[in-house]
């Protein structure tokens, strides 16, 4: 056994930290680019769900603009055909029963919804997870709506006096999604010129 002095223990611990630090850094070096590529693929996949392929000939990921809204930056991915903006998509967030719900919202230049999809959420399986397009068509019913159709004060679930269906046994989730989509449309209305012309 080695001499039991504190400095020896410290050295041993230090050497282990160093060695494993190097191992992790090396792995990071090798996987970093692939992980980034996967994240871009994920993003593109969620964009194709809310922007129809027929309306654009560009890659929305490379024609993104960052819009300052309140204190936060929102990255808006723009669909273009022949140089004019034909649609925009951006992530919106609502609060659900199991924490934040992240959605991707696609709108056309007039502010009409092209599509909404939930991309990350922790809602109750069997109840709130019906916002997932794979489980129910509820989320697709937003397509074609805009602020004013239904009127702004009707952008609520039926229980709150609005026009959107809630789920049996789950009101908080659809309520959060409807509010998030409404906020998302208001965001577009506020920054429409910037988004269409690509100003920051």
């Amino acid at each position: 056994m080695m001499p039991q002095r504190p400095v020896v223990h410290a050295l041993i611990l230090g050497i282990f930290c160093l060695v494993f630090g190097v191992i992790l850094a090396t792995t990071d070096l090798f996987t970093h680019d692939t992980i980034k590529l996967r994240a871009v693929e994920d993003l593109q996949n969620s964009l194709t769900l809310v922007i129809p392929a027929s309306i654009h000939d560009n890659n929305p990921v490379s024609d993104a603009v960052v819009i300052k809204d309140g204190g936060r930056d929102v990255t808006v991915y723009r669909a273009m055909k022949g140089g004019t903006v034909t649609g925009a998509a951006y992530a919106i967030e609502g609060s659900g029963y199991g924490g934040p719900i992240t959605l991707m919202l696609g709108v056309d230049p007039e502010g009409k919804i092209l599509g909404v999809r939930a991309t990350a959420f922790h809602e109750t399986p069997g109840l709130g997870d019906r916002i997932d397009a794979a489980k129910s068509d509820w989320i697709t019913r937003f397509t074609g709506l805009w602020l004013g159709h239904p009127p702004a004060d009707k952008w609520k679930v039926k229980k709150d006096g609005g026009v959107f269906d809630q789920f049996a046994g789950a009101t908080i989730t659809p309520r959060g999604v409807v509010a998030a989509v409404k906020n998302g449309l208001e965001f577009f209305a506020r920054h429409k010129a910037d988004i269409l012309e690509g100003r920051r």
Binding site: F16, C17, F20, I23, L24, T27, D28, T31, T34, I35, R38, E41, D42
Partner: peptide, 19 residues
């Protein structure tokens, strides 16, 4: 340290190759 390093390795490798 060793366990956490192994977990981080799994995490990064899975993220990259078993996405």
């Amino acid at each position: 340290l060793i366990i956490a390093a192994m977990v981080t390795l799994v995490d990064m490798t899975m993220n990259a190759y078993m996405h």
